[in-house]
Every structure is written in structure tokens, then in C-alpha cells.
Design a protein around this nucleic acid. Structure first.
Length: 508
DNA sequence: GTGTATGATTTTTTT
DNA sequence: AATCATACAC
């Protein structure tokens, strides 16, 4: 099928058909997925065989989405993989038997034993965070861990990529298409160097890099990526088809541009609305937003006089910290609103899958059980695959792969959880100093916090409600009680506190 | 083993 | 503020 049937705009077409290695800056709603698909079609059109096209994603969810869309277009399948799954299958192809993969829980269990023996105060989780970093004081632990991995021919998530370090294959005439490059960790970039000679096509948005704590550093990203291909051409998609102008204007003020190229995203949709509220406390914020949500769901009048009523599932309620969602949830329930917590649901589903798999099931039972717990499993995994390989792939499964936003309930999420999603209305709670930017703990990264705000605002297709509380306690200490520095220039309303009901004057 | 006091920790977590 | 791990007494 011809890529032209996708109806690309000039920027998108220029990117999709760029003959060499390219890095495409694709802002929110600018057509990132469309460009990736078009690139695949264009390459096939140019006579590149499908097995020489690698489409790489972070999550199985994105992988499944892309694969479905390619199927719908009726084109032959390129190789679509997650980074870690690709590394695993390259290793499996090169060895006699499928390598053993350690889940995070298994790594932690090993560290726990190690630390106990050593009577160390360090927590296993903390230790695992230091994996692959220069920490001489923990060298001994990691050496023992490495010895264990080597002896048992096992790989954890880190080693899976690290074994490719310094190795170079020959991949001339290959094309690597990479999704969400802004979140590439140094280890993945190092892994990608294995594909020497390939043409790289990277799509993503540095302004949406929010995984700095996983060592994805947008400041160092550009030079790093340029080592993949020295003549990497930087291209832009300049139009957002999602975020309307009024919202985009605000978001763009705070767009962090680590590539230092002045470039602003233009909205293709005029309008949109933004409403701010200042509440007196966390409690009144929760109650106030519950009322606001009721109003939006019940039917509301827009400026032009027409009535727009939203389904509960049209709303994303976002907060910087998970614990901020709790009071919101309670107030929403009291208001009788249907709600959903997609991150919690995904997490518990993942645990259920992991628990069932621990018990060493027979091959037929494995498929059967899996489909029972996870009906969509066949869209994500090849259930016919050899047992060991299927198990390894299941160990690569993470909660975000199972994330599903609700259509029936108001979706309560962290900003991180909302990445990649969109909805008619975004409700951002806790937009105050201390929380946005979140700086109550050391090592807070102001730029990353700014990008989190950018991500939150740019999920919205029609409107944004944002709010802050003048009084809130966190970690047992009061927050400053000021509006977020990044939203301070916007107007906000201060709903009058509902007067406490007058005491009853006595019945008699 | 179990109750209780103490102290440390507290974020986000695509593999 | 609330939770969780650890230590100690019983």
C-alpha cells in the first residue's frame, strides 16, 4: 500500500521519505505514529525487504498497536519488537538453548540474600538502582551478582543489553525505526550501536522526556544519538492535531527544548478552554473537583451556547503523586461518580499473571491460564511460541503493557501514567509549589518537572481544568501554599467555601 | 511467635 | 502523617 493514502501533511511526508538517518521531533498530537507507519510503507515501496526493517518500541502495548495498524494497512510485517525482547531474541538465536531471564523480583531476591549475609543496611531495591552505575562501594555486591548470572547463564534486564556493549554487527541496508527516542537510556543507546551500518529513523519528543530517574537524559541525548549515525538529520513536525490553540499556547511557554532549536508547535484546532481554581485545602479541592466533574458529565454550556456533555471516560484526572489521588477518589465516590484507576488495575493484573506463572505450569495449561487472566494476550504475544521463550517474554511484561483507560469511569492517574494518552478533558490537581515542581526531596530536576507539566496539559483535546490547594500537608509538613510558578500568570477562580450549615435552631 | 516501641523514609518506575 | 522495617521484651 502506498504511504500517500495516509494523507500526510508536508512535514510528515518530508520526514517519512527522508532518504538517510533522521531524528524527528514530533510534539503531542503531531502524527508520530502516522509518520512511523508511513516510513514503513515508504521503505517497502522503495524495495526494502520487510525483514530488514526493525520497528522498535519500549512497551508491548505500543508494539501491539503498531502491529495492528500495519496489519490493517495490509502491508507485509516488518520486525516489530520491544528493545529488550529484541536483545533477548538475538541472544536466543545465538545460543543452543533459550537464555534464562531474571525478573526484577528474582534479582531483588538475590540481592536480599546477599545483603543479609553482609548485614548491610542497604535495601535491595536501592542496590538494584545502582546497577550499572559507578559505585565503587558496591562493587563487591555486583561482582558476586555478575558471577551468579554468568554461572547460571542468566540475564537480568541490565545484562540483557550490556552483553552487546562494544559488539558490532553488520546491518548495512537495514532500517531501524525507533519510537519515543527521548526516553532511551544510555544502555539502550549502547545496545543500538550493535546495529552498525543501519539507517536510523527516530521519532519522539524531547519535551516529553519524563524518565530522567531512569537515566534518560535529554541534555545528553543529542550527542549520544549522533554517535549512532553521524549525519543524523533533525526534522520537525510543526503541527499538533490534538491540542487546541489556547491550551497549546500555555504548554508551549514551558516547552523545554533540550535540543536548543527554537521551534514552536502550532495548533491545527483553534480554541479550547482552560479553567483554574484555588481551593482552601486538599479536602475542598477534592470536593470542588468532584462537583466540577459532575457538572462536566451532567452537561455544560459552552460559550457559543451549545451544550457539551462528557462521558466519564472522557476525563483524565491527573496528579504528580499517586497519594494525591486518594482524597480525590474518596470525594468522587461520595459524589456518586463512576471512576477508574487504570494504573492500579494494570498493576494488580500483572501480579495475577506473575503469580499464576510461578507455579511451573505445563505448556498447554500455560496458554490456557494466560488467556483466562488476560483475554487480549494473543494480541501481545505469540502464544504458540516455545515455552521458555514465552516465559521470558512474560517476564518482560510490565504494568504499562496492561494499562487500559476506562470509557465508563473518570480516570484517575499520575502524570507519568497518562503519558501517551489523550482525552477531551484533563483535570490537573495539586498544581502548586512543592508539588509542581515536586521538590520536597533532594535531586529534584526542575526541567523534568516542567516537562511533566507539558505532558499533563498536552493530553487534552478540548479543555483543561487545573487546581491548587492553599493548604496541604505532605510528609507531615505543610506545603508553601502558593500556586505553581508555571501557572501563576493564569487566572483562577476561588470558589467560596460552602458555608457550614447553620446549626439547627431546635425543633420545638 | 507476637506485641510494641523506635526510627527511617516518604516520587515518578516504559525493560 | 502514615507506613514499613527492625529490634527487643515477653
Amino acid at each position: 500500500m502506498d504511504y500517500k493514502t495516509l494523507g500526510l501533511d508536508p512535514d510528515q511526508e518530508k520526514a517519512a521519505t527522508y532518504p538517510g538517518s533522521a531524528l524527528v521531533v514530533a510534539g503531542p498530537g503531531a502524527g508520530k505514529t502516522r509518520v512511523l507507519l508511513a516510513r514503513v510503507l515508504w521503505l517497502l515501496d522503495q524495495g526494502v525487504p520487510p525483514e530488514k526493517i526493525f520497528l522498535l518500541t519500549f512497551t508491548l502495548r505500543t508494539r501491539a498497536e503498531l502491529r495492528n495498524r500495519i496489519k490493517t494497512l495490509g502491508s507485509p510485517d516488518p520486525r516489530i519488537e520491544t528493545f529488550h525482547a529484541l536483545a533477548y531474541s538475538l541472544l536466543a538465536e545465538a545460543s543452543d538453548q533459550p537464555p534464562r531471564l531474571l525478573s526484577e523480583e528474582e534479582s531483588l531476591a538475590f540481592f536480599k540474600r546477599l545483603l543479609k549475609k553482609d548485614k548491610s543496611r542497604l535495601s535491595p531495591k536501592r542496590l538494584l538502582e545502582f546497577r550499572g552505575r559507578e559505585r565503587p562501594e558496591y562493587q563487591a555486591f555486583f561482582q558476586e551478582y555478575e558471577r551468579y548470572l554468568e554461572a547460571t547463564h542468566s540475564y537480568d534486564y541490565y545484562r540483557l543489553l550490556a552483553v552487546f556493549k562494544g559488539k558490532r554487527g553488520t546491518f548495512k541496508d537495514y532500517h531501524l525505526l525507533i519510537d519515543e527516542y527521548q526516553d532511551l537510556s544510555p544502555e539502550i543507546i549502547e545496545f543500538l550501536k550493535f546495529f552498525k551500518g543501519a539507517t536510523f529513523f527516530l521519532v519522539g519528543d524531547p519535551a516529553q522526556a519524563i524518565y530522567g530517574f531512569r537515566r534518560a537524559d535529554p541534555q545528553k541525548l543529542k550527542p549520544h544519538l549522533q554517535t549512532l549515525s553521524p549525519d543524523l538529520k533533525i526534522l520537525f513536525l510543526s503541527k499538533s492535531y490534538r491540542v487546541p490553540s489556547r491550551i497549546l499556547e500555555i504548554a508551549e511557554r514551558w516547552r523545554e527544548d533540550p535540543f536548543e532549536i527554537r521551534h514552536n508547535l502550532a495548533a491545527s484546532v483553534e480554541g479550547g478552554w482552560v479553567e483554574g481554581y484555588a481551593f482552601s485545602s486538599e479536602q475542598s479541592e477534592a470536593v470542588g473537583l468532584a462537583k466540577e466533574v459532575s457538572r462536566l458529565v451532567g452537561g455544560t454550556t459552552l460559550e457559543k451556547g451549545q451544550v457539551r456533555s462528557y462521558a466519564p471516560g472522557d476525563l483524565l484526572v491527573l496528579a504528580r503523586l499517586r497519594q494525591l489521588l486518594k482524597p480525590l477518589k474518596e470525594a468522587f465516590l461520595k459524589e456518586g461518580l463512576p471512576l477508574a484507576e487504570p494504573e492500579e488495575e494494570a498493576q494488580s493484573r500483572l501480579q495475577e499473571i506473575q503469580k499464576r506463572l510461578e507455579g511451573g505450569l505445563s505448556r498447554p495449561r500455560l496458554t490456557e491460564d494466560l488467556q483466562k487472566i488476560w483475554p487480549e494476550a494473543s494480541q501481545f504475544l505469540d502464544l504458540e511460541e516455545e515455552k521458555e521463550i514465552l516465559l521470558a517474554r512474560l517476564k518482560l511484561l510490565r504494568a504499562p503493557d496492561l494499562l487500559k483507560v476506562s470509557r465508563e469511569g473518570v480516570n484517575l492517574l499520575t502524570i507519568h501514567g497518562a503519558k501517551g494518552l489523550e482525552a477531551p478533558v484533563v483535570i490537573l490537581a495539586g498544581a502548586e509549589e512543592g508539588l509542581l515542581p515536586f521538590n520536597l526531596l533532594p535531586d529534584s530536576d526542575l526541567s523534568e518537572e516542567k516537562r511533566l507539566l507539558y505532558v499533563a496539559l498536552t493530553r487534552a483535546k478540548e479543555g483543561v481544568v487545573w487546581s491548587w490547594a492553599k493548604r496541604r500537608f505532605l510528609f507531615g509538613r505543610p506545603l508553601p501554599g502558593r500556586v505553581s510558578r508555571w501557572l501563576a500568570s493564569l487566572p483562577f477562580r476561588e470558589p467560596k467555601r460552602p458555608r457550614p450549615k447553620p446549626a439547627q435552631q431546635g425543633l420545638f
